[in-house]
Amino acid sequence: MTSGPRPGFQSSSIAHVHLYAKAVPHAVVRTLEDRDHQLDNDLSDVARDIRSPG
């Protein structure tokens, strides 16, 4: 459960991620709570996913 967007937080609709997941069914899709659409300029979670064995 999320607490909702932070003040000044801009976000895309979660529906968009579901559209992308449907369009690219082999992709791994993960949502990160409490992060803006640019991941708060922190790509460490993305890098960790790329490095981890599939």
Rank of each mutant, 00 (worst) to 15 (best):
Gln38Arg: 09
Leu39Phe: 10
Asp42Met: 02
Ser44Arg: 12
Ala21Trp: 00
Leu43Thr: 06
Arg51Ser: 13
Thr31Glu: 13
Arg30Ile: 07
Ser3Ile: 03
Val24Trp: 05
Thr31Leu: 11
Met1Asn: 14
Ser12Arg: 11
Gly4Val: 08
Ser3Leu: 10
Ser13Ile: 01
Arg6Pro: 00
Ser12Val: 14
His37Gln: 07
His18Val: 04
Val17Thr: 13
Asp45Val: 13
Arg51Trp: 02
Ser44Ile: 01
Gln10Asp: 05
Asn41Arg: 10
Leu32Glu: 10
Pro53Ser: 11
Arg30Leu: 02
Leu19His: 05
Ser52Gly: 02
Ala21Ile: 00
Ser11Trp: 09
Gly4Leu: 09
Ala21Asp: 04
Leu19Cys: 03
His26Ala: 15
Leu32Tyr: 13
Asp49Trp: 06
Val29Cys: 13
Gln10His: 08
His18Pro: 00
Ile50Tyr: 08
Ile50Trp: 08
Pro7Trp: 00
His26Asn: 15
Asn41Thr: 01
Leu39Thr: 01
Val17Gln: 13
Asn41Cys: 01
Gln38Val: 13
Val46Pro: 01
Ser13Met: 04
Arg30Gln: 09
His18Asp: 15
Gly4Tyr: 10
Ser12Gly: 07
Ser52Asp: 04
Arg6Met: 09
Leu19Ile: 10
Phe9Thr: 03
His37Tyr: 07
Thr2Lys: 10
Val46Gly: 01
Ser11Tyr: 10
Leu19Thr: 14
Val28Ile: 04
Ala15His: 07
Tyr20Met: 15
Glu33Asn: 14
Arg6Glu: 12
Asp34Pro: 01
Gln10Lys: 11
Leu19Gln: 14
Val46Leu: 15
Pro5Asp: 05
Val29Asn: 08
Asp49Gln: 13
Asp45Lys: 12
Met1Lys: 12
Ser11Phe: 10
Gln10Cys: 01
His26Cys: 05
Gly54Val: 07
Arg51Cys: 06
Glu33Phe: 04
Arg35Ala: 12
Arg6Gln: 13
Ser12Asn: 14
Met1Gln: 11
Leu43Met: 03
Ser44Gly: 03
Ala47Gly: 03
Pro25Tyr: 07
Pro5His: 02
Glu33Met: 07
Val29Arg: 00
Thr31Gly: 08
Leu19Glu: 14
